[in-house]
């Protein structure tokens, strides 16, 4: 469902010169799989996800999402994914219902299909009681539910979630974790980035540790433990990152 081929993104920074934000990355995420991207802030997780969503263009290499090439089939790629990150905020002056409908229409859905899908989603997320309220009047938990609803209104087969629990309270974070689990049961392909180790431990079928734009290792949690001889994912992560810094 998601496959990258030597995906690379360079940025030019006035002070630091050329930055390799994503450096020759090769990963593969399959349907029914939660693929975790673990990395420190600034490791390149968000850039990698932006490349996969076609918001940014790679400097070299490419990727395929549901078989569509990110370089040549960006519209098809965007129609196949649901993208959620802390940078994808909501329109404060629209209501919850209007927001979700808007993204349904942008995804080319018919009004009747939007209404039907909205009904399902609003019921699952318990959103009906605030669907007519403006976003700027809602709490962060409610907003996160709207964000999830707009991400999946077109029932995408691929979900790209960039630190979806960042800055959220325990209950809202738990709802998101539940949502990811449910999506996995629906056989969706989920690429999920975090720097919260226990979230990754709980959710991910496969983990890639990313540091300074490079994927240091990929494997199941058990494989990573076996590679390092350490049990705790925190320690596993630190060992890889430190090893890279020393080399």
């Amino acid at each position: 469902m998601i496959k990258t081929f030597n995906l690379t993104k360079l940025f030019q920074d006035r002070k630091r010169g050329k930055i390799r934000a994503v450096d020759d990355v090769n990963i593969e995420c399959k349907p029914g799989e939660v693929f975790g991207l673990l990395g420190l802030n600034g490791a390149g997780k968000t850039t990698l996800m932006r490349l996969l969503s076609t918001v940014l263009m790679p400097t070299s290499g490419t990727a395929q999402v549901k078989g569509f090439d990110i370089l040549t089939q960006s519209q098809e790629v965007k129609s196949s994914i649901g993208f959620l990150s802390s940078d994808t905020a909501l329109y404060p002056r629209l209501t919850a219902g209007e927001t979700v409908s808007y993204f349904g229409r942008l995804n080319g859905m018919e009004e009747s299909a939007i209404d039907k899908r909205k009904e399902e989603i609003f019921k699952v997320f318990d959103m009906n009681w605030f669907k007519d309220q403006r976003v700027d009047k809602l709490s962060s938990g409610m907003k996160q539910k709207i964000s999830l609803a707009r991400t999946i209104i077109h029932n995408p087969e691929v979900l790209i979630l960039d630190e979806p629990t960042l800055g959220l309270d325990v209950i809202t974070s738990k709802n998101i974790i539940q949502f990811i689990r449910r999506s996995k049961e629906e056989n969706k392909c989920i690429l999920f980035s975090t720097h919260i180790m226990h979230e990754a431990e709980k959710l991910c079928d496969k983990i890639a540790i990313i540091h300074k734009g490079k994927v240091l290792t990929v494997g199941t949690l058990e494989e990573l433990r076996a590679k390092t001889g350490l049990k705790d994912l925190d320690d596993v992560f630190v060992k890889f990152v430190k090893g890279e810094n020393e080399s």
């Binding site: 918001v55 519209q75 965007k78 940078d87 994808t88 905020a89 329109y91 942008l106 995804n107």
Partner: peptide, 14 residues
């Protein structure tokens, strides 16, 4: 500034 630009850019609108 509000972060809604990226939400729009990741939608299938060109």
């Amino acid at each position: 500034e509000r972060g809604t630009m990226e939400t729009l850019l990741v939608s299938p609108a060109s």
